[in-house]
């Protein structure tokens, strides 16, 4: 399971240790095989093997600067691999853009942005189309789709207000609706819980999980703190300095597995309410109660 550094002799099991029967190439919507990325001569991560199936919720965890966002960008086809392979819906990354919804790591909209929530959602539907939007059947379908999306993320109360005036959690729901505009089969979220308060973190985590199940969307979420999403996760990709670990949360987020990954004793503690705390890791921890400004 663990692949610390280069060929340490550990057996390599690329995937299928999620709780459900996956494993066949046909069912994996994302397949990352032995992938590595080099940025500016520096090897960011390597030996990453993960498969994600429809309706699964997978978290990408790891210390700051380990390249969590880069993994999402590689899946999007925005970051070239130094070695290895990624296939998205059976094709090369970037080939199936309309089937992939993406929420970039975000600075929120500031109050000077003069757009309503529904305008932001609409950009996801036809913002990349050329030509003038004409009234008629297409316009009616678009309005209907906007209403559906507003309903899906439960934003009816504020979708018509200026997006810059909304709270962080409300903006995040609007942006998730935008990312879902084309009924994507894959949703990639880069730290969507960052800079939200705890109740909003829990609410957004629940929303993403619900969408993942009900719309059969494969979700890959980069997270700084695993606790708000822990109970929804099917699998965890933990990127570390020595390699990566992939597997169900209990197995990956254990003292043994993280100690092997960091190459130094690390302890994972569970609080009485089920929250996880990692103690003793060299860099910033996975689960972590206060916010740190992005990376």
């Amino acid at each position: 399971m663990i692949r610390p550094g280069d060929g340490s002799g550990q057996p390599v099991t690329p995937s299928d240790d999620g709780g459900r029967p996956t494993g066949e190439a046909a069912t994996a919507v994302i397949a990352v095989h032995d992938a590595a990325v080099v940025l500016g001569g520096h090897r960011v991560w390597h030996g990453v093997d993960v498969r994600v199936s429809a309706g699964e919720f997978v978290a990408v965890l790891g210390p700051n600067g380990v390249g969590k966002s880069t993994l999402l960008k590689a899946i999007l086809g925005l970051q070239r691999l130094a070695s290895g392979r990624i296939s998205v819906l059976g094709a090369a990354p970037g080939r199936t853009r309309s089937s992939v919804g993406y929420l970039p790591q975000r600075r929120s909209f500031d109050s000077s942005v003069r757009m309503r929530g529904v305008d932001v959602i609409r950009l996801g539907i036809d913002g990349s189309r050329w030509g003038l939007p004409l009234p008629g059947r297409v316009a009616r379908q678009r309005r209907q789709r906007i209403d559906e999306l507003v309903e899906l993320v439960d934003a009816g109360r504020y979708a018509h207000r200026l997006v810059g005036e909304l709270s962080g959690g409300e903006q995040q729901r609007i942006l998730i609706a935008q990312a879902l505009a084309h009924r994507p089969r894959i949703l990639l979220l880069d730290e969507p819980l960052d800079s939200l308060d705890l109740p909003n973190q829990a609410a957004i985590a629940g929303l993403v999980s619900r969408i993942s199940r009900s719309q059969e969307v494969a979700v890959v979420m980069v997270a700084h703190d695993v606790n708000p999403i822990l109970r929804y996760l099917d699998r965890v990709v933990y990127l570390g300095p020595g390699g990566s670990v992939v597997g169900p949360p209990d197995r990956v987020l254990s003292s043994d597995s993280l100690s092997a990954l960091y190459g130094t004793p690390v302890e994972v503690l569970r609080t009485s309410d089920g929250r996880m705390v990692v103690v003793g890791q060299p860099d910033s921890p996975v689960p972590h109660d206060h916010q740190q400004g992005g990376d």
Binding site: P104, S128, L175
Partner: peptide, 23 residues
């Protein structure tokens, strides 16, 4: 402007999402 107005609007308000959407 008529041809490129919408992508320009997208790119102007949210460059990164627009880029990923193929703008």
């Amino acid at each position: 402007l008529a041809a490129g107005g919408r992508p320009l609007l997208f790119a102007s308000t949210d460059a990164e999402s627009a880029r990923v959407a193929g703008v």
